[in-house]
Design a protein around this nucleic acid. Sequence first.
DNA 1: AAGCATGATGGAATCGTTTCCATGAGCAGG
DNA 2: CCTGCTCATGGAAACGATTCCATCATGCTT
Lengths: 356, 356
Amino acid sequence: MSRRVTIKDVAEAAGVGVATVSRVLSGGSASPATRERVLAVAAQLDYRPSALGRNLRQRRTGAMGLLVPDLTDTFYGQLSEGVLACARAAGEPVVLGSTGGDPEQEAELIGMLLEQSVDRLIAVPSGDAETWSPALRAGMTVVFADRLPTEPAAEEEDGAARAADDLLLLDGLPPAPRPRPLDVPSVVADDRAGIRTAVRYLRGLGHRRVAFLGGPGHDRRAAAFREAVGEPVDEELVVFGTGSRDSAYAAASGLFQSRPDVSAVIAGGNVLGEAAVLAARELDLRVPRDVSLIMYDDVPWAELCSPPLTVIAQPGRDMGYRAAELVLRSGGRRPRGVVLPTELIVRGSCGPRRSP
Amino acid sequence: MSRRVTIKDVAEAAGVGVATVSRVLSGGSASPATRERVLAVAAQLDYRPSALGRNLRQRRTGAMGLLVPDLTDTFYGQLSEGVLACARAAGEPVVLGSTGGDPEQEAELIGMLLEQSVDRLIAVPSGDAETWSPALRAGMTVVFADRLPTEPAAEEEDGAARAADDLLLLDGLPPAPRPRPLDVPSVVADDRAGIRTAVRYLRGLGHRRVAFLGGPGHDRRAAAFREAVGEPVDEELVVFGTGSRDSAYAAASGLFQSRPDVSAVIAGGNVLGEAAVLAARELDLRVPRDVSLIMYDDVPWAELCSPPLTVIAQPGRDMGYRAAELVLRSGGRRPRGVVLPTELIVRGSCGPRRSP
DNA sequence: AAGCATGATGGAATCGTTTCCATGAGCAGG
DNA sequence: CCTGCTCATGGAAACGATTCCATCATGCTT
């Protein structure tokens, strides 16, 4: 097989120095005549610059990293598509990793990216600030999407509303700046508004016992839930799975069995929603007759369900795209956080509370 | 910020040459004393070898490429998870691209991977042999998953059964070897068996007019369908969408409207299945009373549908994992093609044909 | 004891690009 | 006509690893 065509070959064939070829190809200054000749020769030789040489010289990979918990989760599929779209537009490759929601795997993947000199990363974080400090210390430009790292046991200041507070609302006034543990931009959904709308909607249907079914990384949503419910919430009504489908199912099933008085459930993610539907069916609870259900993520199959699922839609694709934009525009000032709006899409999985 | 620790730093700190450090770190020979000292110094300095230098020297990226049509499609999410799992086990990064099912984008992404010197690629191909020849000419190790590239208008030899023929059946005798246009290993599902089982099952329920609803890359499945049906099949009953959800919906809706006599449909992928359910509902066709439905891919939400969908399950995750294994074991002899078994999972979307 | 084999070791070349710097040509102003 | 400036240009260094090869020490054989 023939050797790869290098810049040197082009230089020789065009009768110029390698420096000139490099300049022409990367838009530096050169006389029109030379430029044309070099371009012609390069095209004729089918020369493709090797990213390897460039990367080494510039001490960085062009690539951006992408870390998601699970590609099987449609929402992360959407988010990834957004990132990929933006990356393609920018001509950058994307190095993908799936953490399985496990901080340890996440840390390992971060190490791998570091070794690859990937210096831009979009992540749906699973670990805490400690997991992320190596990346930040190494000077990586990180943007979090969908979630923020769990805060390392910070003393509560004023309760639930805290975590969501210090983000620049997309179309609101910037709230008083308060230092965050990690100074990393993020792109997340407006969980407070989303959950509030959902809770109000359920309240309007007469539901008093509303439960929240969450997974890893849904702390902010749970907090928003507590806040929206207002009165001190029965903590038995906030249950968490660990991320796997099995554990989500167990959590949902456990909730339904231990608390038959809940008449409505908000699921913090589509995997949880799926589990809730399955668990309800298994326990002969009819949706929405016996229990109303609202789930996060407007995945395509929400409409196929029986009944079609009422959802809190968050723009997964946009989220990925904007996160990628943010990570690309690493120079200059950029907003600390972007909050994307959610939308309650009412379908058929919620009904009025039946009087017991 | 402090400079990156290089192999030279380690060498100096340990009082040895860089060559020795390199040898120690990559398992070459060295005296126990030196080895220990180097290791200690490296650990203390928190030295991480840069992939950049290594890659340039070895003229290849460690990374493996992964090209799928659409991450929003749960099946490709599963497949990707499989690839990622294997890659992680091998300690290799994965560069991801989403082609949108568009040969042009695919070609572009191949070019990008070539530029990155990614020399191992797992792909769900969208283009034909011509799209793929640059990659192969450049010496890339390619493994196709889920599909084979569309054959460039080869003259038919013996009709439908052809494409599926020259693959080494996983647990069968190797059929007579016949040259294929592209000599690329592949991992695909046993579509012939899968479709045959599905068709027989529907036949058993009394259905005579069975239609096939396909998308891009489902040619082999369509061929298997024609073969399974046996008698020369009404070509109006084999309809194709172009890959988008809209086009899938249009195809399904068109089929139902133009041919009210079809009593059962086999969808070649979960996006098509979804479209079929939606279209049927829109046209007030009840599943399975008015029309029976079998769809490819046992995605989690198949069970949530109303009624739960009978599916042809193919092991997406395994498919990805095995493809990755194949691409890693690029040295030595490896099977030309691996065919993974499918399984008909009967749920509730098929019923007996109603006498008209 | 001399010669030879073996194994550890370090210097230097190499990979393909970008970029710094020196050089030389061309041109305008004095 | 000379000086100084601009601009195109090419040589060479740098990036950080691997790997070839020469060197040297050690131990064993004859």
